[in-house]
Design a binder for these strands. Structure first.
Lengths: 178, 178
DNA sequence: TGGCTCATGTAATCTGTTACATGATTCT
DNA sequence: AGAATCATGTAACAGATTACATGAGCCA
């Protein structure tokens, strides 16, 4: 079954949309997935080599404006591997929020400091929500193209989640007496 | 500044409430933090040794019903370290949802399979939400004790978040035509 | 010319999980 | 008696980040 690490699936996923370089994959992760996934060059480039060894992608040199770069294309075996993975149920859905950890143990420093964490969180969420809502509006118009529909679904997830966060911020602040 | 790893802060946090063994810390993580944090024996026991070497906790043998166990107490230095950490802003709030990854790349297998992921997710969330709502009700009654207030706050976060997830599930299913 | 972005990659390190090993006590 | 839980720990492995190294082309 080889490696199950998810960066490989992410790469296969993007390459199933279009050919890309490692650099472009990184940009796409940062822009499209950053709400619920991440990846660094230090994981992407080695993963691309691995996928090439397994014949799930092929590499080819492309020169654009006289600049050389390594573009990857997914193979039929790669598409198969992606579909196999997509057919299996999701195992790990994990939320690791340092903010919540600091709230949970807030008793050691008191309500005032805890409120600060909640307010910082609230500001961050408000910024992100504004951005995501713009995304959703744009994607709704592009939604006839199939891939955009799936992108829209995840952006909508972000919107609903962030709205829930903001509701929590309100009631949390109300519960604190300081 | 020594180690910044968060399992250490989690341990110091629990020990700031009461003395515990490594085993008990694990139980507490699984019951109180499992919504937004995790930890295995393989990380807890080594971390306890590390914290002891740094004199942030002290270990003592306790025999309960003739059974020996290693109980840990937080030191003043340990309390200080915990407070320092709580005073710094939270850096990493990360949501890593395999479900969203499978939805995002759902174009490769189609709407039918994507719907399955959403429905599985929905069921899981409904179960968790029911549990958390019970927690919140219980904690509201215990809320005069300070520590329970912070616990309540994080449970409330779970409730609002999960409600947001369920709203998303509804609109996501509506968007899928299959 | 200097700074930014494009572009690829590696080495060290970090942090954690999984699986295993061991054994006592309690429950049924 | 046998299973489950209490209790402590280690070794191997996994998966990823960070920092570094390198260099080309573009723009002001």
């Amino acid at each position: 079954m080889a490696s199950e690490k998810k960066i490989n699936q992410v790469i296969l996923g993007f390459l199933s949309h279009e050919d890309m370089t490692g650099y472009e994959i990184k940009k796409h992760i940062d822009s499209s997935l950053h709400f619920f996934w991440s990846g660094s060059y230090g994981s992407i480039y080695p993963a691309l080599n691995e996928l090439e060894n397994e014949k799930l992608v092929v590499r080819h040199n492309v020169s654009e404006n006289g600049r050389e770069k390594l573009q990857y294309t997914i193979t039929d075996a790669g598409k198969m591997r992606l579909k196999e993975w997509l057919a299996r149920p999701a195992i790990k859905d994990e939320l690791h929020y340092e903010t919540l950890l600091k709230v949970f143990f807030g008793g050691a420093v008191g309500e005032k400091e805890t409120r600060v964490h909640i307010e910082n969180f609230e500001k961050k969420v408000q910024r992100e929500l504004a951005y995501l809502e713009v995304c959703v509006e744009q994607l709704k118009n592009l939604c006839e193209q199939e891939d955009h529909k799936y992108y829209l679904l995840t952006a909508m997830f972000g919107v609903e989640t962030y709205k829930g966060y903001l509701r929590w911020c309100e009631s949390a602040k109300a519960l604190l007496t300081v």
